[in-house]
Design a protein around this nucleic acid. Structure first.
Lengths: 224, 224
DNA sequence: CTTGAAAATTTGTATGATGAATTTTCTTCT
DNA sequence: AGAAGAAAATTCATCATACAAATTTTCAAG
């Protein structure tokens, strides 16, 4: 009852264009044929083609300049359209879902981080945690808090995990700031223990500590 | 040098529509005015309005049905994940990282599914698994395989988990098809056990079974 | 009140035309 | 020849109009 969405011309063109980019037919930085040309190539109207291109643009795959042409974007990390809706304040049930998701990703990430983290990253974790402890500015604290968790994600060296974290970071930050307002930088002590566990490559221990840390955070965040 | 992007009509309309949704002027589930009416309201052409609407649709904020109208989607934070699509597309994540990520999400999802799955979903899981066993068509088998795992995700009732699964499903399907080619529908037996565990609300058991199942799958997939 | 077909509404697609920004071409001057 | 600048061609942005396809609404028949 839900999947009765028609396949439209624009969907087909979108898929074809996407495939062409993914397959490397058009490489990053390269210029696509003009819209009129693409219309001929795919046998569709300019309307359909343009909506497909527009979708690709929203996804950050291509970029069009009036008069200049359309180019495949070089994938440059997180910067593109990052925060889509950081504005939307999440309802309480949504927060719980977000926390649940975060707990899953982060506990397992911590286990991986303990195995794979290099010295530089551990050092950065320490620095972030130090910054967290030595400030009294709410925003600085929550930023440092987020940074610590981000470093954990980076330490997994799994681009999917890192990217998912980046995408959700705005919402995470909102949640963290909220927590910091309620109870200050109390998480820093937990972080210290986690860092220590990571440093000794104690994967299971680090994971358990992170799980406990997040459970505590959630508990406090929810009971408001 | 980079930010010399012109502000186009379509950008302005997009922002206005987005604001209207975020501010709650149009609430989730609500029907937007027709395109023609919106054109009048904002004083733009239908082309511009439609590109703006299209963007919102890509972001998961609205949904249009031909002949039916355009509706505001219920959002739950999962929309943020929309932007990981380009990464998946461009960076063609290697199997190892994909499997690792999948293992994390799915093992924990199974634990949650055992707690929250309702009868209907369990029934669907059985059906999918039955379809998997009773077919010899590779594509049918792998489709059913994917469906089973998708149902697990759905059983968590966590929109973020569900969304992540949906975004990755294309890649998953490719992996699954590949596996089925190599070793047929051998996973169905595992699935049966997992379903049984879910049915008895044995969360830890189901999780362990899924973990084992994925480990086996990965092992076989890698040794090719 | 129910059924079902016709009418109205609404989104999807196509075509053609014009404006705006950029790129290319070509003339002109040193 | 080389540089500068104007003209032309290219290309994306926007508009108006029309029709097709799908859905919703209306309304008459039973």
């Amino acid at each position: 009852m839900k999947n009765d969405k028609r396949y439209h011309v624009t969907d087909a063109v979108f898929e074809k264009l996407k495939s062409a980019i993914i397959s490397g037919e058009w490489k990053p930085g390269e210029k696509l044929p003009s819209e009129n040309r693409l219309c001929e190539m795919y046998g569709v109207s300019r309307i359909s083609l343009r909506t497909a291109l527009n979708r690709l643009a929203v996804l950050g795959l291509v970029e069009s300049k009036q008069g200049g042409g359309t180019y495949v974007c070089e994938f440059s990390g997180a910067e593109h359209l990052q925060s889509i809706l950081p504005v939307i304040a999440l309802e309480k049930p949504d927060r719980i879902n977000m926390f649940e998701f975060r707990k899953i990703i982060e506990t397992e990430s911590t286990a991986l981080a303990a195995i794979r983290a290099d010295f530089l990253l551990v050092q950065k974790m320490r620095a972030a945690n130090q910054a967290m402890k030595s400030s009294s500015d709410i925003h600085v604290i929550s930023k440092a808090d987020l940074e610590f968790h981000y470093l954990i994600a980076q330490a997994t060296h799994n681009p999917l995990i890192i990217r998912v974290f980046e995408v959700l970071s705005d919402t995470y930050l909102a949640l963290l700031t909220d927590n910091v307002c309620k109870m200050g930088a109390t998480g820093a002590a937990d972080h210290d223990k986690i860092i220590a566990a990571i440093e000794t490559r104690d994967s299971e221990g680090a994971k358990a500590l992170m799980k406990q840390h997040l459970d505590d955070t959630i508990k406090r965040a929810v009971m408001e």
